[in-house]
Design a protein around this nucleic acid. Sequence first.
DNA 1: GAAAAGAACGAACGATCGTGCTATTTTAAA
DNA 2: TTTAAAATAGCACGATCGTTCGTTCTTTTC
Lengths: 200, 200
Amino acid sequence: MVVAATTDKGTATREMILGRAYALASRKGLEGLSIGELAMAAKMSKSGVFAHFGSREELQLAVLEFGAQHFGERVFMPALREKRGLPRLRAIAHGWFDWVRENRHGCPLLASVNEYDARPGPQRDRVVAFMDQWRGITARAISLAVEMGELRADTDTRQFAFEILGITLALNQDTRLFDPKQARAQADRALERLITAYSR
Amino acid sequence: MVVAATTDKGTATREMILGRAYALASRKGLEGLSIGELAMAAKMSKSGVFAHFGSREELQLAVLEFGAQHFGERVFMPALREKRGLPRLRAIAHGWFDWVRENRHGCPLLASVNEYDARPGPQRDRVVAFMDQWRGITARAISLAVEMGELRADTDTRQFAFEILGITLALNQDTRLFDPKQARAQADRALERLITAYSR
DNA sequence: GAAAAGAACGAACGATCGTGCTATTTTAAA
DNA sequence: TTTAAAATAGCACGATCGTTCGTTCTTTTC
């Protein structure tokens, strides 16, 4: 028989810790996340928290994984249930727009891009993989819209994805620096203008 | 007679320190910048460096000021020498694109937006002021292009500026995560498409 | 050149960092 | 219910953090 490596309660606690860590990382970034502070937030001892991950780096990677998991469930999966073409493409974009609003103090995934883009290591690798996954899924959704004739045949999918990324990053920034509602309206308008431009 | 608060050599050293601090902050962020590490980079003692700023927060603000100053000289001033309308608008955008490339390990100003957007305090205030300055200058350049008839009369300047911001942020991200040249080409194309869309 | 002011250093502070080690408590399987 | 394993706590470590203080060296002013 196989002996479980962890206990039910163990994984539950780990998930609880990751939730707190995600919230803390939203405000202070993954590099600003300390085990002592996390332990206080989780009402546990430092060593108790530490034992779940084995190192600070593993904790950071776990938080990234936690975020990627939730993003997938909240953005990708609903979008992939939409029908091919523009509906699915809009769902990807709007899902991300909503995600930006919901993560009120910032999305740790996007924040981590800025923290690790110039720092080689597993964290950067994870972030690159995440952004690459997004690009792949989005590019495919665009391609399908092209195949269905909803976008022009000469549409450059990479270019299109690049511009959606830009709209989202501007939304992400203006949401927290200035007026969230206005930022969202601008993002929506930019997206529709983009789609129109590539429509036949 | 007025007694100078600082010595010539003093300000020179301070500028040297800020240069190293800017470089360090490019890689580790303003929050990842430590005085001990900065002292090593400047080949000075910790207390020697510290005395120039009085606190870590003042050091961070000085680095932000240093970056804003250089950005103004490198991007805003050349652009304001271009003639009104699209030439000036393009100069603002391309100047920023170039700036992203030149700051190879990241622009501390843009990185600081992500570090401080959810953390009230002087650093956040400074970053907001900087982005607000950019928005103001860019919006005015757009307005002038409208007045000169180069852009449609019903052009929404805020919307336009929002989209330029997005293009730059996407460029900033893709430059360091993926292929810089491709990212730059995509940014240029996005900008031209944007201008075309708002042209009569 | 003397006197005053500023710049830089060295040492130390309390606090916190990540991490290890050992004990104790709690959970899951027999 | 006993027993082995896993989860958690407690404590201590060396390192580094920002900051303070007193001293020394260097620059400026008269």
